[in-house]
Structure formats: C-alpha cells, structure tokens
Nucleic acid binder design. Structure first.
Lengths: 127, 127
DNA sequence: ACTTTGTTCTATGAAAACTAGAACAAGGCT
DNA sequence: AGCCTTGTTCTAGTTTTCATAGAACAAAGT
C-alpha cells in the first residue's frame, strides 16, 4: 500500500498515517487479517520516528480497527459492527463540513452527490 | 446565538468558535448581513482571549464566510457560490469519516442516512 | 472629543508533536 | 539454544502550536 506523508501539512503525521491506513482498508488495498509493517520498519520506510508510527497504531486500536499483539505485530481486525459510539463519532466529524456546505448554498442533493463521489472513489477499486 | 466553548476539548478554541459560527449560519440563527460581536466583546463574553477570537474571524474570512471591515466590524458575507476549491476542501474534510464508515461495514445508503440526519438537524430550524 | 474598532507588536506559559536513544521481555525463526 | 525482531516503556530534547497578556496605533462611529 502506498502511504504519502506531508511533513508540512497542518495535520499531524500520526493522524495522516492513521487516516491513510483507514482509507487503504476502505479501498480494499488492505484486508482484515493482513499485517501492518512493524513500527520500526514502517517508520524507516516513511522517514519518520518509530514512536510516531506507534502512536498511529494505538489510535487505530482505540478505534477498533486493528489488534496489536505484543511481541508479534499489528493485524487488521475490525471490531463488531457500528454502534452508537461510532455513529456519534462520525456525525461530529462530518458536522463542520456539512454546515459549511449548507452555508455556501449547497442543497441536500448536492451534498449527497459529493458524499457519493467520495464513497465511489473508495468502492470502485475493490477486489 | 449560543456559543459553547469546551476548554478541555482536543479541538482548538478558535476552531470550535469557527465551527459553531458556521453552524449558526447553517441553522439560520445568523444571516448574511448580520454583524458578529467585536473581538473584544466576544472574547469577554466567552471568557477567552481577544486574539483567539481574532484568529477565528480571520479563519472565517479566509473561507469566504465573513467580511472584516477594519475599524468597523465583522459582517456575515458569503462569497460567491461553490467552486472547485470549496469542493476539494469539503471532500478532503469528509474523507476520513467516510472511509471509517466503510471500514465498519456501513453501506452507501447508511452513510447517506447519516448525512441526511445531520443536514436535517441544521435545516429543521430555519425561519 | 471620546469610545470602539481591528491591527500589530512583543512576550510568556503550557501543551502537543516529533525526534532520539536506550533498555526490556517475549515471540518467531533457524 | 541462539539470534533477531517484536511492541513496550523510559528519559530527554527540540520545535511548533495554542492561548494568554499587555501595549500601542490609526481610523471609524457616536
């Protein structure tokens, strides 16, 4: 899987990494059961510090997306389906963008089309 | 308009303020032409520093949502409709949430329902 | 005139992010 | 058994961001 870190982004490196791993799973580039590189190997590959990768892995584990097996590795493991906590998390995360879309005059259909275009970008390349 | 700042949030205060002002416009609580409080008055009201409010105002101006008139005030002024820059901004902002939704098994319809619930929350209280 | 406006400047404290190096115990492999 | 790799934990340092504070300015509003 291809990861691209932008050091000058206003988004923290470990967050960039977390997001891109999630997007990689959404696209199907990585599947449940697959292993992520070791924190050291990944860090060397990306040109960042080991602890930065480690922080990202723990963020993914907290979200219930990977399982970290001490002395072994990190395996993609999606925890049980979507519950209220996930719903709330996603809602709060999308709120600012949706509000901004409305402010700029986008209709609900416009917004849904925008969302669909993002969904399609992920789903088109599955399998 | 009611603004609620959470000092212990992991979201910066000026970002919280920016988002809530945008949401206030989306809900119709504030309308184009309305003035925002002066940076000093708003800061005193919220219990934060003047510069923090100022930073939020400039973020809103950069987004094209308000017009800051030096020595006068900040007026809600939505710049011309949605262009490619806005589209890209919104897409990038929603990407992480949509990817996470897909990862957890949500269908496109599920995601659209979630989006609709957020849109409705804003639009229900217009006028 | 007087107040209020946004702006600009310097300064400081606190927290977050990132890097660095070292050490540890345990799993995997030969 | 021996060796390498694993994630983990610890201390340490730097840089950046965020938020605060105070002062001063020129100009708009009253």
């Amino acid at each position: 899987m291809m990861i691209r870190i932008e050091p000058d982004s206003d988004i923290a490196i470990y967050t960039q990494l977390t997001n891109q791993i999630i997007e990689g799973i959404a696209k199907g580039d990585i599947k449940p059961g697959d292993s992520l590189p070791s924190v050291r190997a990944f860090a060397a590959d990306l040109g960042v510090n080991m602890h930065t990768v480690n922080k990202s892995y723990h963020e993914l584990e907290k979200k219930g997306i990977i399982r970290i097996v001490p002395k072994s590795g990190a395996i993609i493991n999606i925890q049980n389906g979507y519950d209220n906590e996930l719903y709330t998390r996603l809602r709060e995360g999308m709120k600012p963008q949706i509000a901004e879309a409305i402010v700029f005059g986008m209709s609900e259909k416009d917004i849904q089309n925008l969302v669909k275009s993002v969904v399609d970008e992920f789903k088109k390349s599955i399998d």
